[in-house]
Design a protein around this nucleic acid. Structure first.
Lengths: 217, 217
DNA sequence: TGGACAAAGTTGTTGAACAATCCCTACGGT
DNA sequence: ACCGTAGGGATTGTTCAACAACTTTGTCCA
């Protein structure tokens, strides 16, 4: 479908920072630049609004969402519920799934060695995506995909400090080890404190920004 | 928005059984019957496809989804992860949220006393919606809403036996009691076995149907 | 300064049009 | 009678043009 391609293009542009938080997306101009009709573009925009990447104000157009501290807390509330839960249910962990998690760890280390910080961020996302994929649930995968897209928005908003993901690489490795040893509960506990720390860091960064910038509107 | 109204109308029709599993939804006729243009209807259809209530086959149109046993198992995999998890986190349970859960219990009992089985089914959904709402997470609420819409499809498909929800009323009451006493872990355990039993029952019913009926296509 | 008012621009929605694709049927060969 | 195939009809995917409803901007007047 053409609308899906447009939606993906916009999603990527937001993730890469080509469209920063709060920028308006006029339908006429955007449809021309993406080479689709306005109707098709509208379908793509609706999709991204449903994904919380864009926000629509009736008769006022859509803008790139400007997530606040509340949004960070809510995303982490879900992640704290889902990700450790998946770790604990070791019966579902296939060797293929664990291999994918392991691959994300080595990918992250390679990227860090090359000082490729976007690569580290990507590897980190692959790690968490792989973690959730251990459950083998398409619906959970889809939900996680949404959350990760929002996470990219968070990083985009706070300027994505280069070595932000650095300290989590070793945590990822430790969790992968625990999972491979079948110690799902230990992995879950470690992941929980790790996520809480990351949440705190993000909330701090975003509340600092919220002092000068407006909210989601 | 007009598309949202059309989507809601279709969602309701599916939940009520006016549109049964597998029925095709031709755009021209449907847009006329809903009083919206074909473009607007398409937006609504895309929305429902994203919610897994409808299935789109490229160039062949959209049909009401015909969920199989795999879908039941996957929905319950998510529910088994989310709902007990919410019960365990007693720190988030507000008295208002607990009151909503309690209200769903009494609503179910009243409906059962009146032998209003659709009412019992609705109360049961309110119970689980209220349960998840205890977490106070908009994103989790939205996810649960999707799952409950799919559950309605399941019931629709298996013919919705009248006293199906009956035995769960007392379970709901017991879980509400445990939550009000702050015994979140006990509530979670009880809910887990309850959900597992319901899943088993649904899988059985649907595999029986799958013998003669086709799959999701 | 403050507020009513008109103008301009954008969105929400419609209707018609056309190519691409799929389904069904009728046809012809064996 | 059976099977493959071409054609016709119907439906979808997508575009274009138009218009009403609404928001915002800028102007004018008190």
């Amino acid at each position: 479908m053409s609308a899906d391609r447009a939606a993906r293009a916009l999603r990527d542009q937001v993730a890469e920072g080509a469209l920063s938080c709060g920028t308006r997306l006029p339908e006429e101009r955007l449809s021309a630049s993406l080479g689709v009709s306005r109707n098709t573009l509208r379908e793509a925009l609706s999709q991204l609004v449903a994904e919380r990447i864009l926000v629509r104000a009736p008769h006022r157009g859509v803008v790139v969402a400007t997530p606040g501290a509340d949004d960070v807390r809510d995303v982490y509330r879900v992640r704290l519920l889902v990700e450790p839960g998946v770790c604990r249910d070791t019966t579902a962990h296939s060797t293929g799934g664990l291999a994918a998690v392991r691959a994300a760890v080595t990918e992250g280390r390679a990227a860090a060695a090359a000082e490729d910080w976007p690569g580290v961020a990507g590897a980190n996302q692959h790690f968490h995506r792989g973690l959730v994929a251990l459950a083998g649930s398409p619906r959970l995968d889809a939900q996680m995909e949404l959350l990760l897209a929002e996470m990219r928005l968070f990083f985009q908003r706070m300027g994505a400090p280069e070595p932000f993901h650095r300290p989590y690489l070793e945590e990822n490795a430790a969790i992968a080890n625990l999972l491979e040893e079948g110690r799902g509960d230990d992995a879950a506990d470690r992941l929980t404190s790790y996520l809480r720390a990351a949440e705190h860091q993000l909330v701090e960064a975003i509340t600092a920004l919220d002092g000068s910038g407006p909210r989601r509107s």
